[in-house]
Amino acid sequence: MPQPVIVARDLVKKYGEFAAVDGLSFEVAPGESFGLLGPNGAGKSTTMRMIGAVSTRTAGGLSILGLDPDRHGPDIRSQLGVVPQADNLDTELRVRENLLVYGRYFGLPRRVVAERADELLEFAQLSDRGQAKVDALSGGMKRRLTIARGLINDPRIILLDEPTTGLDPQARHILWDRLFRLKEQGKTLVLTTHYMDEAEQLCDRLVVVDHGRIMAEGSPAQLIREYSSREVLELRFGSDRNEEVARALEGSGDRIEVLPDRILVYTADGEAELERISAAGLHPITSLVRRSSLEDVFLRLTGRSLIE
């Protein structure tokens, strides 16, 4: 087993009395794609800032590339590629210039930076936009430029904080494709997300975080297997009848979950379960059988929905 590139032990970050991160322990292996999944305010971004060596921890142990970020911040950061939640491209500069000035921060010679800038513009599918103003780019393009910027130093670890939040579906898929390529190149990715489809697409392994603590850890498939059933039957009886019907449904499937607008029945075979329910004389307005997702895992673990 190769030495992990990130080791966190009982990591704590407090703001006054409030513990944003409350004892996280995890390791990330080189080349791994690791996710922090959780709702807004779970402590994901705070954790990312500590891993990014820009925020000091209150307690616990943290090692990035074998170094303590308290003492070796600049050294560690020279090996990271950071894609923050909010783009902080310089809007006073043009697209390619953003890569040029950023590359210089790592002490790279101008010639090297210029070469890499052109390669990365191509990678980000922005070659024809090099001279454009940043504000003229779409949201998806800005994100890709931010990712390109994060790659200018050929980083060992890439940190992505909510990489596709706020993007339309098409832009998200383009971005996922780019990130998947990085993963194929053997880059270590650490990403936070509150989208379960994103976590399922990109993460080899993830931790589910809530209130600054780890609720579960594993690959997406493992987590679904462990905390959910194979399929989920979604039933809608109308919001005023859900509670009442739920009582009648008790005992159906492995478990049921009553949400304000629908009832979820966790079961190995959704179609069969639906037939049984219909035979019992309960007729939902709409019904849907789908595979379990990380959303269900999260609901099971916290009793809350991921996006509220």
């Binding site: 009982d10 307690a59 142990g61 943290l62 090692s63 170094l67």
Partner: peptide, 10 residues
Amino acid sequence: YRDRSATDDA
């Protein structure tokens, strides 16, 4: 009170 036991391997 920060744990540095295994974290600073230069």
